[in-house]
Structures are given as C-alpha cells and as structure tokens.
C-alpha cells in the first residue's frame, strides 16, 4: 500500500505482446501486470489510484486535472502490479488531445485489467463507455464509485444483477473514504491473477 514508487514516463509502450491470459513472465519492471484506470473526468480515478498505490496525485473536484498519464505500483494479493491513471475520456472515439492519450494507452499497453470508474449516480450516462470497452475486448472491471452520494440521492443499484447483465465484475466503492477498496483489490487479484479468458491470438 505504501509503495512510494511512481514511475513517470512511458516505458514499455507498445512492447507488450501478451494477451490478457498470457502467463506472467519474469519479475522485471516491464513485465509487471498492468491495471489501467479509465473513466470520464471527475469520477474519482485519481483517488482510486492513490488508494491502490499509496502515492499522492493531485486530486481535485474539478474535471480535467489529469492530463498526463500517472504510473504507480501496487501490491495486490502479494503481487506487485503497475497501476496507470489515465486522463478522463468519455468514449473510445476521442475528441480532445487528452482522450487520445488515454485511448492510445489502452491500445498499445494492453493492460491485464481495465478498471472503469464511474459515478454511480449517473449510471445511465456512464454505461455506454463500459459497453464500448467490453465490446473492444478489454478485460473490464466496472467500479461504481461515490455510492455514498448515490445513496444520499435516493438511488440504489443491484450490483449482482448488473454484474450478470454485463458479464464483468462490478464493485461498489467510496474512494474518498476507502469503502469497498478491499473488495476492489480482491476482485482485481482474482481477475488479473487467474484470467480465464478463452481468447487466443
């Protein structure tokens, strides 16, 4: 949790060739399993990143603050993994420069898990992007963040049902307080650690 190693810069870009079910290779920096955090601006991606890596990225209640990609390391189920925080993106069709940066990262680095963080209160507006990510074949985990504010707005989401419908893991979190983060780590570990995807290249 408290690994203060942030790796900035774009090492290993486009060099990975393994699929999501490829076996873990040696424990070198470049072959760490990778988790990419994506989502629209201002849903708490950076807070989740901080929670997972223990590093501090400037977090703001203000859309568009993460312009460059931030990298950190996290210990998930005893395995060191690289966590990548991306600039906000609304869809796989980029409009702005920062969305292009985020998309390029997904295409070229082929993360073992793509954590889609959404604002739980606006599920309807957030799901199209989740569906695009699934459609593209990324190993998606959906994170319904800010469930406290969702509850305060009188909304309830049936997580199990959503999970069944989407057929990807769904977790509920409150990143600012850390609620649900253990669950998230557990699911990430299961997902990345025992990939059961059947696609071969």
């Amino acid at each position: 949790m408290n690994m203060r190693q942030t790796v900035l810069g774009v090492f290993g870009l486009g060099k990975r060739s393994g699929s999501c079910c490829g076996p873990a290779t040696g424990p070198t920096e470049n072959s760490l399993k990778k988790i990419a955090i994506v989502g629209t601006p201002n849903v708490g991606k950076s807070v989740i990143f901080n929670r997972l890596t223990g590093t501090y990225v400037t977090v703001s209640n203000y859309p568009g603050t993460t312009v460059d990609v931030t990298r950190g390391k996290s210990l998930i189920a005893g395995e060191k993994m690289e966590v990548v925080d991306t600039p906000g993106m609304y869809s796989l069709m980029p409009i702005t420069e920062e969305e292009r940066v985020a998309r390029l990262l997904l295409f070229e680095e082929k993360p073992q898990a793509v954590l889609h963080v959404v604002d739980a209160r606006n599920l309807e507006r957030m799901l199209p992007f989740t569906m695009q990510l699934i459609e593209a074949g990324f190993p998606v985990i959906l994170d319904l963040n800010m469930i406290d504010e969702m509850a305060a707005a009188g909304i309830e989401i049936d997580v199990v049902k959503l999970e069944k419908e989407l057929n990807v893991p769904v977790v509920a979190t409150v990143a600012t307080t850390g609620k649900g983060l253990n669950d998230l780590r557990r699911r990430l570990a299961e997902y990345v650690g025992h990939p059961e995807c059947t696609v071969t290249i």
Binding site: L123, L127, P128, M131, I155, D158, K161, E165
Partner: peptide
C-alpha cells in the same frame, strides 16, 4: 441499451 440496463438494475 445503457438506458435499458440501468433501468433494470436501478431503483
């Protein structure tokens, strides 16, 4: 599709 999905899981 998103609207359909969200309506069946949200109350």
């Amino acid at each position: 599709e998103a609207t359909r999905l969200s309506s069946i899981v949200t109350t």
